[in-house]
Write a protein that binds this DNA or RNA. Structure first.
Lengths: 200, 200
DNA sequence: ATCGTTACCAAACAACTGCTTGTTTTTATT
DNA sequence: AATAAAAACAAGCAGTTGTTTGGTAACGAT
């Protein structure tokens, strides 16, 4: 017989996770986004949340699991926000523009989780590379779908076009500084520089 | 064939450097390109060239200096090759296409030095960040000049267009696998996806 | 009151990092 | 053959890394 659990109070559906697990992830995301994954130490993270290094291991069983959690949360948040944003648009090009602008706002305006998902490449944590890539792909699906629905000249390679756009978008993180052109504006321009050449 | 040996031990232009300094840089470039700068240890490099770790310090006084040397060599090689390639072209758009194709060939076909200059961002070595950025900028000048000479619609932001193109180009390193579309072809397409929209 | 779980601290560990030091071998020039 | 410089070795140092272990205070439920 299995032990029957009478749920009195807590809901153990998701692990344990106290109220301090989230601040911990926030701190990790902030540091990963600023310095990179390998350049951030467990001591960095612990001191950011006001804990001792060893205490982190009560909440997560390894540094890799922290990165995985950050990635997961980034995908969830961004995907949801993006889908609800483009839902209002009918026109595929409009959708692409909206998606690009929203994505750029996320990675350029202090959304540390999004910045980590985009900026920390899966191969920086080889042992969980596959999981990270899967999460990333789950997000990129949005752009795949949008671009596949685009009316294009038939000599335009949709996959190559998508990789070009994503590459341009994601590399903004390396040069953008607060005070530059607004993220929204950058997104609008990027799409404009491509549309007339490829639309069919 | 015959080795040209001049009695006078000349070549004080660059430091000392024996014949093993270059293989050492080759090994470093290979490892930096494959695993990243911080993820590559002095022991990795030394074992790749068949030396003991300490012996590296006869040729370079620090790990950072190795990275600096790789960067420098990458800029020299690539800039020279690129300039002589585009010299034959008169048309600015033709120049841009040629430059893009040549650049892509370099970073996608085993040119480890080019891959390091593009893939290892200056902030990964904070203490020499400024020197690395300067070297990078010296290379990007080529693209700045080409794009400035492009006949564009007057509502096209040249700087933004350049950053878009460079971003798209340089991020190919994260998804390209040997056996995909030829680097040249990728470059040709990228420019094609932009030209009609921006040309004026 | 007792118990078990939660959430942390305190201290350390083994492995790894870039780098230094003193010594030996190799090479080239006389 | 002698000599000095160039090039590499052998060993280790001090600091950092992710992680482990054992303990303990707090607190709600029994």
């Amino acid at each position: 017989m299995q032990k029957k659990k009478i749920a009195t109070k807590s809901s153990p559906i998701i692990k344990s996770s106290s109220n301090r697990a989230q601040p911990l992830l926030d701190a990790a995301a902030k540091l990963f986004a600023k310095k990179g994954y390998n350049e951030t130490t467990m001591r960095d993270i612990s001191s950011e949340v006001g804990m001792l290094p060893g205490s982190l291991y009560y909440h997560f069983k390894s540094k890799q699991e922290i990165l995985l959690a950050v990635y997961g949360q980034a995908v969830n948040d961004l995907k949801t926000r993006l889908e609800s944003t483009i839902a209002s648009q009918e026109d595929p090009w409009g959708k692409l523009e909206l998606a690009t602008m929203t994505h750029l706002e996320a990675i350029l305006d202090h959304n540390n989780f999004a910045r980590v998902m985009i900026g920390v490449l899966p191969d920086k944590a080889p042992e969980i590379q596959h999981e990270l890539t899967t999460l990333r792909d789950g997000y990129e699906t949005i752009f795949v779908d949008i671009i596949n629905s685009l009316p294009l000249k038939n000599d335009v390679d949709k996959k190559l076009l998508r990789l070009m756009i994503m590459g341009a978008i994601n590399s903004t993180q390396t040069w953008y500084h607060m005070g530059d052109t607004e993220p929204k504006e950058i997104g609008r321009e990027f799409i404009r520089y491509i549309r007339e050449s490829t639309e069919g």
